[in-house]
Design a protein around this nucleic acid. Structure first.
Lengths: 158, 158
DNA sequence: TGAAAACCCTACTAAACTAATAGAGTTTTT
DNA sequence: AAAAACTCTATTAGTTTAGTAGGGTTTTCA
């Protein structure tokens, strides 16, 4: 499962991406809107800043802005930042590879073979999709819902 | 990442599946062969027994046997038994679904939409593949290696 | 120029989880 | 009856998680 940090981080980024990109977004706004404990959120946003995903503006009226366009902030990057490897076994991780200490012949390991497949499936989604895709999907879901609402009200009228 | 329990559990099952299915396999044998702490392994095998994946024979010369054919013991079942949900968010889990307490409108959540895709990709692999597939892949990897070894020795002779 | 508003940073903590370990009990064989 | 195995529960040391506390620094603006 995703940690709270990863989940909150993604939600915070999504929130920032939805705002006017010229005005910094403040921790307290995000905290309120997304129900994330304020102090906890501070450490999360700081992590995102250190990882060059956000930039901050200090002082009164300060806040956070995206450092990259939403299309370049992948879900995978954020997940890895907070939760480490995406792979289920260290021996199939691309970014955090470690040999299995208890595995005698990694090259012939059926388990590794299968979890490599899982890691490939997961990684190819998380590294392909970005903040922009989250926003797009949200938009599409809402549009779809609106269409079906219209249909309903139509048939009701008749 | 997979817990040690899940990993050890899978390795133990693999080991048992490779033996003669008429003679019970003993904890100490598995412990030795797979470098799994004996006492820890005991609790793992007990979990597998309670979950109806293994059956046990008590007393001297006792041990464990598969309760199901290898093709019916899926990786997903074993992973879920030890580590819980395969999904990265509770709201996209099939077997352990829980609504996100901090999510106001789950139906329009872009995050949920994406992690549902991940869960589908992962689940469809883990629930399709079984112990039998681990064994099969191991066999194929070794066969492949042997073939390439033969080729090498051929070209060396020449 | 100073107070308020905001981010910055480190340390701490309670609770939960992980990876075992301990030790005694039960069952079966020989 | 002794030995060999599985059975079961409790305990424990270490780590991780999800925060919290409490300042510090920077900037704005009246």
């Amino acid at each position: 499962m995703l940690s709270k940090k990863a989940k909150y981080g993604l939600k915070a980024l999504e929130y920032i991406a939805k705002q006017d990109q010229t005005i910094p977004v403040q921790t307290s706004d995000i905290s309120l809107a997304e129900s994330i404990p304020r102090k906890f959120l501070e450490t999360i946003l700081l992590d995102l800043k250190k990882n060059e995903i956000l930039l901050s503006i200090q002082g009164k009226n300060g806040g956070y802005l995206l450092k990259l366009p939403p299309s370049e902030i992948t879900i995978g990057r954020v997940v890895r930042l907070f939760d480490g490897p995406i792979a289920l076994l260290p021996c199939v991780s691309s970014n955090f590879y470690e040999p299995c200490e208890d595995c005698e012949n990694e090259a012939f390991c059926g388990l590794k073979n299968i979890f490599a497949e899982v890691r490939e499936a997961t990684g190819s989604i998380l590294d392909k999709l970005s903040l922009k895709d989250i926003l797009r999907r949200e938009f599409e879901l809402k549009k779809k819902k609106q269409l079906s609402n219209n249909k309903t009200s139509c048939s009701n009228k008749k």
